[in-house]
Design a binder for these strands. Structure first.
Length: 218
DNA sequence: GCGACAG
DNA sequence: ATCTTGTCGC
């Protein structure tokens, strides 16, 4: 008999993204710096057959890690640009749910609304959990922009289909810029200062940097 | 048809 | 994302 998994219906997944994108809220759910911030990132083991997600909870003021969690799952889908969230979200949500306390904001490695259909992994995670979220991409998926200045903090708007979907941020001198976009319940204007406030001398903001260490390296 | 394309 | 050590430059 055939024990293989049925072929994923990519057209269905894309339609699901359009439906969920309609639920994204780009209005700030809080003011100032949240007391607890979570960072989420995903890596792979065994040549890609195992998906490994990490979630780290940090104190929003000191940026010190309070707790961390790991989740492993058999990889269900291949990597397809634009459909990344369906591949990484199952494990990422599991890791996030293992944290002892819910964060007031989640920073995810990947894009927010800077996506072909407005639902990058950070936006997808935000809509499913109801939590405010921000996407931190390390390279461009969609949008046009001017190269930001060389100083830490220099930035320029990321434009897509006639509107601003995020920012391109020089988080560290001599390093490639970061692509910052809101996920859910955070405004385009506020996602930038929130990420800048989490920078601690590295290219990636602390939440995502710490989650990356657990999901990939160590 | 051709080029682009998160992790 | 992952396979992989040392090495050049700031």
């Amino acid at each position: 008999m055939d024990t293989s998994t049925p072929a994923p219906d990519y057209a269905r997944l894309r339609q699901q993204q359009r439906d969920l994108a309609a639920q994204v809220e780009l209005v700030d759910a809080f003011q100032g710096l949240p007391g607890r911030i979570a960072g989420v990132d995903t890596g792979f083991e065994e040549g890609g057959s195992i998906t490994r997600s990490a979630a780290v909870l940090l104190d929003g003021q000191s940026l010190q890690p309070l707790h961390s969690a790991l989740a492993r799952r058999p990889t269900a889908l291949p990597y397809i640009p634009g459909l990344l969230s369906f591949r990484e979200l199952p494990a990422a949500l599991e890791a996030l749910a293992q944290l002892p306390a819910p964060p007031a904001l989640v920073m995810v490695d990947g894009h927010g609304i800077a996506h072909p259909r407005g639902l990058g992994i950070a936006a997808h995670l935000g809509v499913l959990t109801g939590l405010p979220s921000i996407g931190i991409g390390k390279s461009r998926l969609v949008g046009d922009y001017e190269e930001p200045g060389p100083q830490r903090g220099d930035h320029s708007p990321l434009l897509f289909k006639g509107r601003q979907v995020g920012w391109v941020l020089r988080s560290k001198p001599r390093c490639k810029p970061l692509f910052v976009s809101p996920g859910h319940r955070v405004s385009v204007a506020q996602c930038l200062p929130l990420v800048v406030a989490c920078l601690a001398g590295y290219r990636l903001p602390e939440p995502t940097r710490l989650a990356d260490r657990l999901a990939s390296r160590r």
